[in-house]
């Protein structure tokens, strides 16, 4: 068991107050432990944690480019293997780096079976460059490249199923987690780094700046994502879903109305049909993962 009282991600970095990814970084390192080498992609976390000559990382850390973290990690892992070293290799990358620009390198690294853990901190858009749409952006979210307007409700496309894609690569362990459930998150990280082969973890990390909510509400909002069924915490072992967090579901409005990125669904007029479509996404998630507690 790794000592989870260790603080390996230092305070004093440049993240916004209430930043979901910053909290995720701290919890991920608690789960991974001191014997870890972190590979980051370009993105918010890289920028707020390592302005030269300062760093927040108390473990060895490397950043190369936006899209190549998993290829860099492949090289790190091969080098450690050759040297007979035992550190764990963990990628921590945003959703743009994972769902979009880095998917070629990720696919290659997973297909080759490197012993790495790839963790996506999913804040559902390109936040570092100013809140542009990624393939992780949820349906109807307004971003700067999928803005809501007179003839648009925002992002028209559903979220890409990255866990499914990586499970299909034969990853032995794939899971989703949330900063609202820190014990679960740390345990999943620990399990992933101790599972031989390429493992994938996708962590829901609300972004107060990009989603438009008060920084004091980050954890509450994360919980609501789970409680509405719009985010499901689950585990897949060898491609089969083995566990999913069950909830007494709340209506999706409870989650949507707290965020400016969905404000156009409520004002100037309530968009019942659009909200119904988002409710249908939550219902489909609930069905797929069997999360409903019937009361």
């Amino acid at each position: 068991m790794v000592d989870k009282s260790l603080e390996l991600f230092d305070p004093g970095h440049r993240a916004c107050g209430g930043c979901g990814p910053a909290l995720a970084a701290r919890l991920i390192l608690k789960g991974a432990g001191r014997e870890t080498i972190v590979v980051s992609s370009t993105g918010c976390m890289e920028v707020f944690s390592t302005p030269y000559p300062e760093t927040a990382w108390r473990v060895p850390w490397i950043h190369s480019l936006f899209e190549n973290a998993s290829a860099v990690a492949s090289g790190v892992e091969a080098s450690l293997k050759k040297q007979g070293r035992s550190e764990k290799v963990v990628c921590i990358c945003g959703d743009g780096a994972t769902f979009d620009i880095g998917i070629l390198c990720i696919s290659g690294a997973f297909e080759r079976g490197h012993d790495i853990t790839y963790i996506c901190y999913d804040n559902e858009a390109y936040m570092n460059t100013g809140i542009q749409r990624s393939a992780a952006t949820p349906y109807d979210a307004s971003t700067t490249t999928s803005p809501a307007g007179a003839c648009s409700f925002g992002n028209k496309l559903p979220k890409k199923d990255m866990p499914g894609i990586l499970a299909a690569h034969g990853a032995p362990y794939v899971a989703t987690a949330s900063i609202a459930y820190p014990a679960d998150l740390m345990q999943k990280v620990e399990r992933a780094v101790n599972t031989p082969g390429p493992c994938y973890l996708q962590v829901h990390t609300p972004c107060c700046t990009g989603w438009g909510f008060d920084g004091s509400k980050t954890i509450g909002l994360s919980k609501l994502a789970i409680e509405t069924g719009l985010w499901v915490n689950f585990e897949m072992v060898d491609g089969e879903v083995t566990k999913a967090k069950k909830v007494v579901r709340k209506p999706v409005e409870d989650y949507l109305k707290m965020q400016k990125r969905f404000r156009h669904l409520f004002k100037p007029v309530l968009q019942k049909d659009e909200i119904a479509k988002i409710q249908a996404i939550a219902d489909s998630n609930a069905e797929k993962y069997g999360i409903d507690i019937r009361v």
């Binding site: 080498i37 590979v39 490397i62 190369s64 480019l65 899209e67 190549n68 290829a71 860099v72 990690a73 492949s74 090289g75 790190v76 892992e77 091969a78 080098s79 450690l80 040297q83 070629l104 390198c105 290659g108 690294a109």
Partner: peptide, 13 residues
């Protein structure tokens, strides 16, 4: 692209 990225990682390690 990954060939040189992997070399970068291995060299750094």
């Amino acid at each position: 692209f990954s060939a040189l990225s992997a070399c970068l990682g291995a060299s750094a390690a």
